[in-house]
Amino acid sequence: MELVMIIVIGFLFAAATYLMLSKSLLRIIIGTGLLSHGAHLLLLTMGGLKEGAPPLLGEHAERYVDPLPQALILTAIVISFGVTAFFLVLAYRSYQELGTDNMEQMRGKEEDD
């Protein structure tokens, strides 16, 4: 199971890298989304995909699942949800203001304030 997860994570990272290297801002944002999905999956996998009972006192099981990675991922997901939402609004605003979503045309800087 770990092997499958690792392949999936690798695929997500590859796709994210590909998207982030493109010029369109929207693709870049989707790329960052995929990147954080990959990171979250990695966190889950690294916590160990053990099979076992829920980590509750009353269960009396031989093995328990580690609850911590799930809590961590939930936090990380909420954060990346917020950041992605902000990023989308930012991209939209800049599209209105700058008239382009092409990163190539956003290079350099004006020498004024």
Partner: peptide, 24 residues
């Protein structure tokens, strides 16, 4: 706007790396 896009992008990537590092 232009600089914030770059700043955000750099930091989103570094945050993902942070999560990865914590995972490892």
């Amino acid at each position: 706007l232009r600089e914030t896009i770059k700043y955000t992008l750099v930091n989103v990537i570094s945050s993902a790396l942070f999560v990865i590092a914590v995972g490892y």
